[in-house]
Amino acid sequence: MMYTLYLDRDSFLHKLDPRVKIIGSFLGIIAFILFNSPSLLFVLFLTIILALVLIGKIHIREIFTVLKPLIPIAIVAMVIWPFILKPWYFGLFIGAGYGIRLLSVALLTLGLIMTTSQKDLVLGFIRMGMPYEIGLTLTIALRYIPTLYMLTQTIMDAQKSRGLELEKGNFFQRARNTVPVLIPLIVASIKTAHELSIALESRAFGASKRRTFLYDIKMEMKDYMSFGVLIALFLLTLYVRYCLEIGYTKLF
């Protein structure tokens, strides 16, 4: 069972300040949107994979596992273009770029999640100005995914013991068969949320406007350096795209 995509490793990327990683992914996504030449996008795509493997200690197999579900969508994005853009081989060429762009943007986001623990990720967002309440909500939501998964299994077992057959019948029957599982699950979720809110309030949640953190993140030399490198790379991207006008074909 995979509860989370995070892979606990001891690598440069893992130790990097989450804020740098968040901004890095964001700039990366912008870079991918700036270009539409497939060869250039492909090189950028390989660069990200290489970065994740070399400085993130993520196995190439693990990258493939998280990207696998998106491959069909990437292929659809690719084969749709020849219908819009003529001649067809040019459409396919541009379509390939779009497919790679889709996978790359996904990989940037997934790479961030794979190398940053939930705790660090939320803290990074809060330190960048996200209100603490939203950060906490996010943490709680993520924290309860495995719990609810286990609860769903228990409820399914209980209903199967009453003769419920989840896999039986056509699509509509199957949809209806989920009702005996969904209702106890929703009731339990609402109850848990209610109890949690009481627990939070009884521990004086929101009593003070300014919070302190037991565990905090701090920008170190390597973080500033990495941030500098990211900005430099991004500026280079802008230079290549707008001054040298490479890597973008005007389509319409």
């Binding site: 228990t154 077992d157 013991s161 009453r162 106890p184």
Partner: peptide, 12 residues
């Protein structure tokens, strides 16, 4: 027949 521990897990 299997009666589960938490009855609420089966009521709908």
């Amino acid at each position: 027949g299997y009666v589960f521990q938490n009855p609420e897990n089966m009521f709908f």
